[in-house]
Deep mutational scan, measured.
Amino acid sequence: NLRWTSEAKTKLKNIPFFARSQAKARIEQLARQAEQDIVTPELVEQARLEFG
């Protein structure tokens, strides 16, 4: 299971509600691909840039 830093959680809250669950799934996918067990603000930002 993935842990989220408080900064990453804050960044996730800045994503519009309607896109948040999809973004969260993508962020967690990116973390797993990078073999990380902690979601960082950088991963959230990477996903945000993908979504535009």
Rank of each mutant, 00 (worst) to 15 (best):
T10E: 15
K11D: 06
Q46G: 03
K11E: 09
F17C: 09
F18D: 07
P41T: 09
V44H: 00
I38E: 08
A23S: 04
N14C: 11
P41Q: 08
I15M: 06
S21F: 08
A8F: 01
T5H: 04
T10M: 13
I27E: 00
L43E: 01
R26F: 14
E45V: 06
D37N: 13
E45G: 03
Q29M: 11
L30N: 02
E50M: 12
A34M: 15
A8S: 04
I15N: 01
I27G: 02
L30D: 02
A23V: 15
A23Q: 05
E28F: 02
V39F: 00
K11P: 00
Q22Y: 12
F51N: 06
I15K: 01
S21R: 13
R32C: 05
A8V: 01
F18R: 10
R48V: 14
E35M: 15
N14E: 15
E45M: 07
R48N: 07
K11Y: 11
T5R: 02
L49R: 13
A31V: 06
Q46V: 09
P16F: 06
Q22L: 13
A47S: 06
A8C: 02
E45A: 08
R3C: 08
D37I: 11
T5Y: 02
V44A: 02
T40W: 04
P16D: 04
K24D: 01
G52P: 11
E7K: 10
K24Y: 07
A31E: 00
A25W: 10
F51S: 06
Q29N: 07
Q29H: 09
N1G: 13
T5N: 05
I27Y: 01
K24N: 02
E42Y: 06
K24C: 05
E28T: 03
E35D: 14
E50W: 09
K24H: 05
A31N: 00
A19F: 15
A25R: 13
G52D: 11
R3Y: 14
K11T: 06
T10S: 13
N14P: 01
E7W: 04
T40A: 02
P41L: 12
N14S: 12
F17S: 13
A25V: 11
A31C: 06
E7I: 06
W4K: 01
N14I: 07
V39R: 00
E7G: 11
S21E: 14
E7M: 07
A19Y: 15
K13D: 12
D37M: 13
I27M: 02
D37V: 12
V44W: 03
N1I: 14
Q29D: 09
L49C: 06
E28D: 03
F17W: 14
Q36F: 09
T40P: 02
Q46A: 08
I38F: 10
E45D: 12
P16T: 03
T5M: 07
K9S: 08
P16Y: 05
I15L: 07
P41E: 12
Q29E: 14
R48A: 13
D37P: 08
E35H: 15
E50H: 04
D37Y: 14
E50L: 11
T40N: 03
N14M: 14
T40D: 02
A47L: 08
F18S: 10
K9N: 06
N1L: 12
